[in-house]
Design a protein around this nucleic acid. Structure first.
Lengths: 209, 209
DNA sequence: CGATTCTTTGAAAACAGTCAATCTGTGTGG
DNA sequence: CCACACAGATTGACTGTTTTCAAAGAATCG
């Protein structure tokens, strides 16, 4: 059962769209019509990105957001001393982009690097705004995503001022257990705002429990 | 020039609503109609809160958000050791509330304490959702507020993992210069996630420049 | 297998936290 | 108007934690 004629010519990309449709329907609890699916296909551009490649780089003005169908990425800033600090990770079913840059038209302070060979769907901010105002599923899903990300940002801020490095690490394990298997300790340390050595010592200290 | 008949009977509260209308119009760049103003008046409840009084307390399930017309507040969490950590401040034209609690119906982890005698306008989440779907000005203003708060949360997270205490303090002075005059150093330190002594030493170190 | 990257460990230095004492400014009541 | 109390800010000495630098030990990949 194919959802439309294009699938005959683009079987691989079709599988990517299916992931996106499923995502929108799950987040909104509403079904997409064939017509709506077509509108979405028209604006999302499938792209394969190899490990270590950049989605965008510090200084770019981001016009696009990327939906990760497969793979993972890190978004980081680089300070004056050249040290990188991971602001957030992205995995399947997550979005990567810098809203500050594409909402305000400013050059981004961040770089997004793929951590595995990945499949993403790119969409421009303008196109997404149009979908949002015409497709209720997209509007609902977006509301739900915005809520979630607001809450998780709020919690991350609270964690950063009220918890020790050790507590933040425990908290991360609880919230995102897959991160620990999937990302190197260097990356986890960078995400927590501590040095890799400190993270290593926290882990060995807590090995007994 | 009075905007409607109620003003004759509620001169003080009217002034509070004027502040709210002005705020919505400024954030959305659209004018409110008399009809819309009436709908807004119907759901926002003016309230005076004295210094040191609580808007809500840890454990409450927040049904309301508060728009600050005059005064200021701090929102803080209390850790296991009984130490308070300020998550955010509120001043005139800002909102106070815990979205996590009122969006998800969970008891809040935060307490909001007024730092001065204050005038606020309370609105329930349900009422606000209704305004949002019927009044374009409110919808636009809310979008713009959400954007801004998303960006500022993002920046705060980046600051907390990539900057030293000293840099975070400099950053705060740049972003919110009024905070330094308005809030005690104990509070600023709590907001930055450092001890009051450390903040005092940072300040004296930097007094030369 | 060699090369590279990631992790662990050690020791010293830098940094922030705690506790206690002092200093400053404010406002109150005598 | 002064004395006092109180809260906030500063300073010093000490403690504990984290960073840094360096080196050695795993793990991974071509």
């Amino acid at each position: 059962m194919l959802r439309n004629g294009f699938a005959l010519f683009l079987p691989k990309e079709n599988f990517m769209f299916e992931a996106l449709f499923h995502y929108f329907e799950e987040k909104s609890s509403i079904q997409l019509t064939a017509e709506e699916e077509q509108q979405i296909r028209a604006v999302f551009k499938p792209k394969k990105l190899r490990k270590r490649h950049y989605l965008f780089e510090e200084g770019d003005i981001c016009q696009c957001a990327a939906f990760i169908v497969k793979g993972s990425a890190r978004m980081f800033s680089t300070d004056k001393k050249g040290h990188e600090h991971i602001v957030r990770f992205g995995i399947e079913g997550w979005w990567m982009g810098d809203s500050e840059s594409y909402l305000l038209g400013l050059p981004t302070k961040y770089t997004v690097e793929m951590l595995e060979d990945s499949d993403v769907l790119l969409v421009s901010n303008d196109d997404y705004q149009r979908l949002l105002s015409t497709i209720p599923v997209v509007a609902e899903a977006t509301k739900s995503i915005d809520k979630q990300s607001f809450v998780s940002n709020q919690n991350r801020i609270a964690a950063s001022i009220s918890m020790t490095a050790e507590e933040r690490y425990e908290d991360l394990i609880k919230r995102y257990p897959t991160f620990i298997q999937r990302f190197s300790q260097n990356m986890i340390a960078s995400y927590l705002g501590i040095s890799p050595e400190t993270l290593s010592r926290i882990r060995s200290r807590n090995a007994g429990h």
